[in-house]
Simulated scan of single mutants.
Amino acid sequence: MFLAWNEIMKNKLRFILITGVLMLVSYLVFFLSGLASGLENLNREAVDKWDATAIVVTEEADKSMPQSSMTLGDLDDIEADDIAVIGQLNAIATNGDKKANVSIFGIKKEEFIMPEVSEGEEFAADNEVVASDALKDDGFKLGDELKLSSTEETLTIVGFTEGARFNAAPVLYGDLASFQRVKFGEAAGENEDQINGVVLRTDNLSNVTNSESLEVVEMEEFITSLPGYTEQSLTLSFMIYFLFVISSVIVAIFLYVLTVQKISMFGVMKAQGISNGYLSRSVIAQTFILAVIGVAVGFALALITGAFLPAAVPVSFDITALIIYGLVLIAVAIMGAVFSVWTIVKIDPLKAIGG
């Protein structure tokens, strides 16, 4: 460690460049991790608020709630500790020059998926809704009347709830009757028992239903089946893993070049009796110091960047994941130093000093 630190202090510019590269790579890894987490939250916020075990949809819906079509009569075929019915519809909501894609949830207020209201009040009358507070960023406020692209019905915002987006769209919660009027229009009376799914809380999923037309989907599987969710997550994860490889290669190249430049010096040191183990540990220690500094600075910059980003940028940092990624970056940097260690071990002192 003594030799490693002294060399860093003596050749500050070289090692600042290496640390700078490590800092930029780690900053990008941390930021991509925050972006991946933020985008995942955009898709699953409302579902996570349910704190549910599973959802029942029709077999032919392919685990998609919008594609599922059920009736309240199907509840007779479902047994669980706690049950909540839900209808779901995507629409475009406008109020003057304000416009937003929304997901409308038709629910029963007395059931467990009713959200906690953070501002305003719960819906109590026809066509009243509790909206995701994400709509505030688009300029919507309490009392706004929303015109919808799919119907002539208008909905009135009477309350807001925190963290309620489904498949990246802010959610509007209303009663089932309002939902059915929005979805079916004049035919709502004929479809008053229509729903899209049944959300469950239960300890035993094996005996939920015996109906061949219904499928019980565990909540995590339901989330990963949302359109684009898995593809988006895999893409960002692949980018992060590829950056680990890049980090290792960059460190390996930098340290190898520095080692080659110091072959004669290492030869002299070995001729004086300094062991390969001591020199190897010095290179590893040097890499560890540089990696820790670079990763720490990248970590701090990512958090600072996230604090100043506008709400429209979906970044959410999971500190545990960032720490794990930081440790991995340090580990792959040390792995990149192995090439330099191998070069040092192969140095012949006599040849290195020109003997």
Rank of each mutant, 00 (worst) to 15 (best):
E128T: 05
A311Y: 03
L32K: 12
D193F: 14
P349N: 13
L309N: 06
T259A: 10
G120P: 02
G163W: 01
F184A: 08
T320E: 10
Y27F: 15
L226G: 02
M265N: 11
A271Q: 12
V56A: 02
T53M: 04
R44Q: 03
A296R: 04
K262T: 08
V47I: 14
A54K: 08
N196L: 01
L258F: 14
V29A: 10
V85H: 01
V85N: 01
V29Y: 06
N207M: 14
D76A: 03
A321V: 14
G306C: 09
Y256C: 05
G159S: 03
V297A: 13
I344G: 07
S68I: 06
L234C: 02
M269K: 15
R165N: 00
G120V: 00
L22Y: 04
S275H: 07
G174N: 09
L279W: 08
M65D: 01
V338T: 05
E122H: 02
G298L: 10
L32I: 07
I284Y: 04
T209V: 09
L176S: 05
D144K: 09
V249M: 11
L172G: 10
V315G: 00
K63I: 02
D318I: 08
M70F: 09
A91P: 05
S233K: 03
M219F: 11
A80L: 09
G273A: 13
G228T: 08
V117C: 07
K270S: 08
P349W: 12
Y229Q: 00
T202C: 06
L301Q: 13
E162D: 05
V171H: 06
N191T: 11
I323L: 13
G159A: 04
F308W: 06
L200W: 08
M239R: 12
V208A: 10
G139V: 15
L301P: 00
S103E: 06
V297F: 14
L24P: 00
E111Y: 13
I250G: 03
P115V: 07
